[in-house]
């Protein structure tokens, strides 16, 4: 399955790049993340509990960051499995300052923004894949949105503090 979209974070690209790789922030932003620990350079182990309506599933997996090009792009490789199935994802995240037009027209005091666009492939297997076709697209969008919403609020909190 192809996944793509974009989200605007209320911080400058350098900062966005940094928080997108900050395990402490990621752990708080990822919906259902129970733990995220660094196990090597750019490699993390994580535990997630997905609660979605009646569905509940625990996943254990790994996340790896590759092809780093700060502050413009990096690749994210995720792998997880649990009782209800497994998932693999591989995507490219691109960061760009929000549109020039807006920056130019904005008041000088307006905070900088970064558009994070993502594009990738996700594979789902196991029971989830067999029964969840109808739901995968919508729920993945929802989880990604939740993640960025939370990330944005965390980023703002940090900036304000």
């Amino acid at each position: 399955m192809k996944i793509s979209g974009s989200y605007t974070l209320p911080v400058a690209p350098e900062r966005a790049y940094q928080i997108l790789q900050d395990p402490a922030i990621l752990a708080r932003a990822m919906p259902g993340c129970e733990s995220l620990e660094k196990i090597g350079p750019d490699e993390y182990r994580m535990k997630m509990k997905v609660l979605l309506a009646a569905l509940s599933g625990e996943f254990e997996g790994k996340m790896r960051i590759a092809d780093q090009a700060p502050p413009t792009s990096f690749r994210l490789i995720v792998e997880g499995s649990g009782r209800i199935g497994f998932l693999k994802g591989d995507g490219l995240l691109k960061l760009a300052p929000a549109a020039t037009v807006r920056v130019l027209s904005a008041a000088p005091s307006e905070p900088p923004e970064t558009i994070v666009s993502y594009e990738g492939d996700a594979q789902v297997g196991g029971t989830m894949a067999a029964v969840g076709q109808r739901l995968i697209d919508g729920t993945s969008k929802m989880m990604i949105k939740k993640f960025f919403d939370k990330l944005a609020s965390l980023a703002t909190d940090q900036r304000d503090s």
């Binding site: 009646a54 569905l55 509940s56 599933g57 009782r83 209800i84 029971t127 989830m128 969840g132």
Partner: peptide, 14 residues
């Protein structure tokens, strides 16, 4: 109608 099938598949384990 949604919960029971999910329980049978163990996607839901209340």
């Amino acid at each position: 109608m949604s919960l029971i099938p999910m329980m049978k598949l163990r996607l839901a384990v209340p």
